[in-house]
Simulated scan of single mutants.
Amino acid sequence: MTENSFRTQDRETLELALGEQIHALISASHALNVRSAERFDATLQPAAFHLVRWLYSYGPTSAAALAEATAMDRSSVSRLIKQLEKSGYVSKEPDPNDRRGVLLSLTELGQQSTVSALKEKESVFYDRISRWDDKELERFTSMLRQFNGLEG
């Protein structure tokens, strides 16, 4: 076996190991999202909480923009928004920039319920990094930003 083929095999092994860890992170994050959605409101589908989390993070928006931002079809967003509105989590207001448009936003109940639901997720991730020193946390964050294409 040549040195070059040995390096290629080592690289492939490393890439497979990285893939396993990324999959583990995605799976753990998904499981935490489902638990957070259940904590938010067990009567709603987790997809409704996905919309709530987006509104919590980015603020008021139209249903069309919300559908596009969350990669959900408009009919699903419309159905879920009706459920969220009926439950008192989301309100509709006229768009000040477009009289025909409507902006969706979280109500006070929606904001409070979202914060409460996200606390469990935050505590799980905090527990995992609590023994890291600042340099380790900084390096991990930097590498994730690079991996996510947010840094050059």
Rank of each mutant, 00 (worst) to 15 (best):
I22M: 11
R7H: 13
A65H: 09
R11S: 14
L84V: 00
Q45D: 13
R7P: 01
E68Y: 09
A47Y: 06
A63H: 02
A28T: 07
Y58N: 09
A42F: 13
T2M: 07
T61F: 01
N33E: 14
F6H: 14
F49S: 02
E85P: 00
L44N: 01
S62F: 00
D73T: 01
L32I: 07
S75E: 04
I22C: 07
I26E: 15
L66Y: 03
A71E: 13
S57P: 02
F49L: 04
L25T: 04
L32M: 15
Q21M: 06
K82C: 04
L25E: 06
S36V: 00
R35H: 10
L84T: 00
D41E: 04
A69S: 13
A67P: 02
E20V: 09
E20S: 14
Q83M: 02
R7C: 05
Y58D: 03
Q9S: 10
I81H: 12
T70V: 03
S76M: 05
S27M: 12
L80D: 10
K86N: 13
S76A: 07
D73R: 04
S27I: 12
A17C: 08
D10V: 10
L44I: 02
S27T: 14
A17F: 05
A48E: 01
E38R: 08
S57I: 06
T2D: 15
R11F: 10
H23W: 11
A24W: 02
D73K: 05
R11G: 09
H50L: 10
R53F: 03
Q9I: 07
S29L: 03
E15T: 10
G59K: 06
E68T: 09
E15Y: 10
Q9G: 04
L51S: 00
R39V: 02
S27G: 06
H50R: 12
D10Y: 08
S36I: 00
R53Y: 05
K82M: 04
A65F: 01
R11I: 13
R39Y: 05
F49V: 02
G19S: 13
A28V: 03
T13S: 12
H50T: 13
G19R: 11
V52F: 10
A31V: 11
S78I: 00
E68G: 06
S27F: 08
L16V: 06
L18I: 03
V34Q: 08
H50S: 07
L55V: 00
T61S: 14
S75A: 06
L55C: 00
E85T: 05
S36G: 10
E3Y: 09
E15H: 08
R79Y: 09
D73M: 02
L55P: 01
R7N: 11
D41M: 05
L32H: 12
E20K: 14
L32Q: 15
S29A: 11
R39C: 05
E15V: 08
L32A: 15
R79F: 05
E15L: 15
L66F: 02
W54F: 12
L18Q: 08
A17Y: 07
T2S: 14
L25C: 03
E15A: 10
L25D: 08
E3C: 03
S75D: 03
A64Y: 02
G19H: 09
A24T: 07
V77K: 09
T13L: 13
V34K: 08
A69I: 01
N33G: 09
L66M: 04
Q45G: 02
H30L: 12
R53W: 04
S76R: 09
E15S: 13
L16C: 07
A71F: 06
P46A: 03
Q21V: 00
V52G: 07
R39G: 05
